[in-house]
Design a protein around this nucleic acid. Structure first.
Lengths: 186, 186
DNA sequence: ACCTGAACACCGTTCAAGT
DNA sequence: ACCTGAACACCGTTCAAGT
C-alpha cells in the first residue's frame, strides 16, 4: 500500500493501471463509454500519456479483448478439468455464464468494429481460445463439424439474446435453470 | 426525375432523403461510420438541418432500426405465406439470410447501445416483429416455450457467428448449404 | 524513458438569424 | 416551417517541450 492513492502511476506501471481502470469502466459503461481522455483522467494522467503505451484507442480495446479471450479459455479449461458427466452441456452452460458475468467484455471480444481494425493480436487470442475449445471437445466427443457448429451457434445465440435482454426471464424464474433447459443435452 | 440532382432536398422531404442516404451509408460503413455531419453533407444540407427531423443521432438510428424490424417481419411473413413443408426450418434459414443480406442493419436492430437509450419506438417495432414470428410459429407447431427459445438461440447465434466471420466457410463450400445443414430440422 | 501542454481536425448539439 | 452559420463542449491524436 503506497502512501498516496495516485502516486504509483506517475512513474510506475501506467500501462497496467490503464488496463485495470479500463476494464472497470468497460464493465460499467460499455465500449462506447470508454473514452481515452476519461480513462486518462480516471488514472490521474494527461490526455496524451496513454499514447506512450497504446498506439490508439483501438489498440487499448484490443488489449482488453485479448485478456477477455484468455480468461474465457481459462474458464472453459477449468470446467473441462472437473470431468463433468456431460462435457458439452457443462461447457455450454459455462460459455453462457461467462457471457452474462462479463457482459461488456464479451461483447467487446466479438465486436465487429474491433475485428474490422484487423489487429493481429485479437485474431490470435480468439483463435487460441477456440483451439482450446476444439481440443477439449475433440478429445471427448467425435461430434463432427456440423454438430459442433450447431452447438456453438445455439450456445452463442443464447448468450447474446440473454445479454441483450431479448429473452424475457419471467418473474420468479431461475435464469440458471432456464439456460440449462434450453441447452438441454448438446 | 427532377432537373437538378440535389434540388429536391432543399425544400422537399428532407426526412426521407436523410433516411435513404443513412441506410446506404449504414450498409457500407456500419453504424460507427454513420455520422450526422457526414450524412448532412451527403444529402447536401447544413450540419444542423437534420435536427429539424430527428432529435439526435440516436433518434435517426432508431428510425433505421425500426424499418429494419419491419422489413424483417415482412420477409418472415412472406416465407410463411408460401406454406413450406418444414415451416420452422424455412423460417430459420430466412432469418439467417436476412441477417447476412442486411448485415449492418441487422446489427443495428440488435444494438445494445441503441437499446440502452430506451427509445420506445425501437422496442415497439421489435416486439411487433417477434409477435409476428410467434404468431406464424404458434399456429403451426405447438413447440413449447423452451423449444422455441432453443430454436431462436440456434438461428440467431448462427446469424451472428456468420456475420462476424467466426464460422469459417471453407473454400468451394456453399454458404447456403452449410446453413441448411446446421439448422437441420428445427 | 516517460509524461505534459498546447494544438489540430474533427464530432454531436444548440441557437440566433435568415428565407 | 424549414434551413444556415456560427458557436460550444467535447473527442482522438500529434508533437514539441519538459523532467
Amino acid at each position: 500500500m503506497s502512501t498516496l492513492a495516485n502516486a504509483p502511476y506517475h512513474h510506475g506501471n501506467l500501462r497496467q493501471a490503464l488496463l485495470e481502470a479500463a476494464l472497470i469502466i468497460l464493465d460499467r459503461e460499455g465500449e462506447a463509454g470508454l473514452g481515452l481522455r476519461d480513462l486518462a483522467r480516471a488514472v490521474g494522467v494527461s490526455a496524451a500519456a496513454p499514447y506512450r503505451h497504446f498506439d490508439s484507442r483501438a489498440a487499448l480495446l484490443e488489449a482488453l479483448a485479448v485478456t477477455g479471450f484468455q480468461r474465457f479459455a481459462a474458464t472453459m479449461e477449468a470446467v473441462a478439468a472437473t470431468n463433468p458427466v456431460d462435457p458439452m452441456s457443462a461447457m455450454g452452460k459455462t460459455y453462457v455464464f461467462f457471457a452474462l458475468e462479463n457482459a461488456n467484455l464479451f461483447r467487446l471480444m466479438f465486436s465487429p468494429q474491433l475485428k474490422k481494425e484487423g489487429r493481429p493480436g485479437l485474431k490470435m487470442a480468439a483463435d487460441a481460445a477456440f483451439e482450446t475449445l476444439r481440443h477439449i471437445v475433440g478429445g471427448d466427443i467425435r461430434a463432427g463439424r456440423i454438430k459442433a457448429l450447431a452447438a456453438w451457434a445455439k450456445v452463442h445465440g443464447l448468450a447474446i439474446l440473454l445479454l441483450d435482454g431479448q429473452i424475457a426471464v419471467r418473474a420468479g424464474e431461475d435464469t440458471e435453470a432456464l439456460i440449462a433447459e434450453i441447452i438441454g443435452s448438446l
